[in-house]
Computed example of a mutant assay.
Amino acid sequence: MAVDNLLERITDYANRPDPYPLYAELREAGVARQQDGSYLVGTYHDIAALLHDPRISADPRNHTAPSRGWAEDGPKPPFLRLDDPEHQRLRGLAMRPFGPPHSPGRIDAMRGEISRITEELIETLKDHGQIDVVDDIAYPLPVTVICRLLGVPREDEPLFREWSDAIVASADVRSEEDSTPREQAGSKARAEMGGYLVDLAEQRRGHPTDDMLSAFVNEPDPAKRLTDEELAATAVLLLIAGHETTVNLITNGVLTLLRHPDQLDRLRQDPGLLPNAVEELLRYEPPVHMRERIPLANIEVAGTTIPRGTTVVLALAAGNRDPQRFRDPERFDPARPDNQHLGFGSGIHLCYGAPLARIEAQIALGALIPRLGTARLLQDPPPYRRNAMLRGPRHLPIEL
């Protein structure tokens, strides 16, 4: 079959339940030029090399095509979509109240609270014969955690959920004729959500509280303060990234374990395998399937020349099942050795929130596994989210 429409087929909602045969086609091709002029890369070693290549930009303003949602004279993208040195500066400032070296114990100290939130969620479901893993556990847990970490009122969740949906949709990798309406909706949502978060932060200026928004506006060193624009972009990124991917990680974890009852039983018998199992889930069913990059010069990948300024889609989920890198890659193995997956990306943009996501997934799955012994899926495949880049079930109904 022709590979010049692979992106269209991968992003077709009909293939959301199982895009892996398409990823195998992509790996066979190595690099596939698409009808819209973009390029797909699907082999592990090529993806890893490109994620570490300084000639590859994350900044959408480096497209030779029109703005793709980020105008030169508009707001700067968040640090996730910037290159060094600006990326390094903003990521470093965002990291100060989050993790090492300035706040080394912050995330680890939340283990007790995350466990308590998880147990409270599960306790409310103890008499339920059926639950939706997404709505009942996988979504409320990371949302509650990131709200407390940032200092966002949990009761405002319906407000920022609408903004989050629009922003995530605008960032999706899709093959479509006109992405303008989606990008405009995303820009509007970013502006509104950013204004909301800056206003919350300003309420704490001079009145510090134990949250990240407060830490940002009460930074004593003028050289280490974020501007209002930077604060808005950073806070929006942290609030969205702090829950969107973790929802998928937890939900895909439950789905995978219920599809592999032998491995579920193995983890029930040996809970010490759980950290390894989470790493295997990040490889086998990752929450992020694709990332978009832009070459700053003509580059050659697997014998194909990719022109400067074009879109390159790195299919991380395809690389995670590359038989040239992983032995028996289609097998889910919670004890898999040498599991240097691409579930959190790689290179300078390695996921900022990976330590928190790992802890949340370990605690959530650790609490659920003993209760899944007689559980069964009520829908398989379950209904999936529309998003192809952040792939995961929209609902996961199970019977306990």
Rank of each mutant, 00 (worst) to 15 (best):
R106T: 07
R106D: 03
R106W: 04
I107K: 02
I107W: 01
I107N: 04
I107M: 06
I107D: 03
I107A: 08
D108T: 11
D108M: 12
D108H: 11
D108S: 14
D108P: 02
A109N: 05
M110N: 03
R111F: 06
R111V: 09
R111W: 03
G112H: 04
G112I: 02
E113A: 13
E113F: 07
I114L: 06
I114Y: 10
I114F: 08
I114T: 05
I114Q: 07
S115Q: 12
S115N: 07
S115W: 03
S115P: 00
S115R: 14
R116M: 09
R116H: 08
R116W: 05
R116Y: 07
I117N: 06
I117Y: 15
I117G: 05
I117K: 10
T118G: 12
T118R: 09
E119H: 13
E119S: 13
E119Q: 12
E119C: 05
E120A: 14
E120I: 00
E120M: 08
E120R: 12
L121K: 01
L121H: 01
L121F: 01
L121G: 02
L121I: 00
L121S: 02
L121R: 01
L121Y: 00
L121A: 03
I122P: 05
I122A: 12
I122L: 15
I122H: 10
I122R: 13
I122V: 07
E123R: 14
E123K: 13
E123M: 11
E123S: 14
T124F: 09
T124G: 13
T124V: 08
T124M: 13
L125I: 00
L125A: 07
L125T: 00
L125F: 08
L125N: 06
L125M: 14
L125Y: 11
L125R: 13
K126A: 12
K126C: 03
D127A: 05
D127C: 02
H128Y: 08
H128R: 15
G129H: 13
G129T: 04
G129W: 11
Q130G: 01
Q130D: 12
Q130E: 15
Q130I: 09
I131F: 10
I131G: 04
I131H: 08
D132I: 05
D132S: 08
D132P: 01
D132T: 04
D132V: 03
D132E: 08
D132C: 06
V133R: 10
V133L: 15
V133D: 09
V133K: 11
V133E: 10
V133Y: 11
V134H: 05
V134L: 10
V134Y: 05
V134I: 12
V134D: 03
D135K: 14
D135V: 05
D135N: 12
D135H: 13
D136Y: 06
D136L: 10
D136F: 10
D136H: 14
I137Q: 10
I137M: 13
I137N: 10
I137V: 15
I137T: 03
A138W: 07
A138P: 00
A138S: 15
A138T: 01
A138E: 04
Y139H: 13
Y139V: 03
Y139A: 15
Y139G: 05
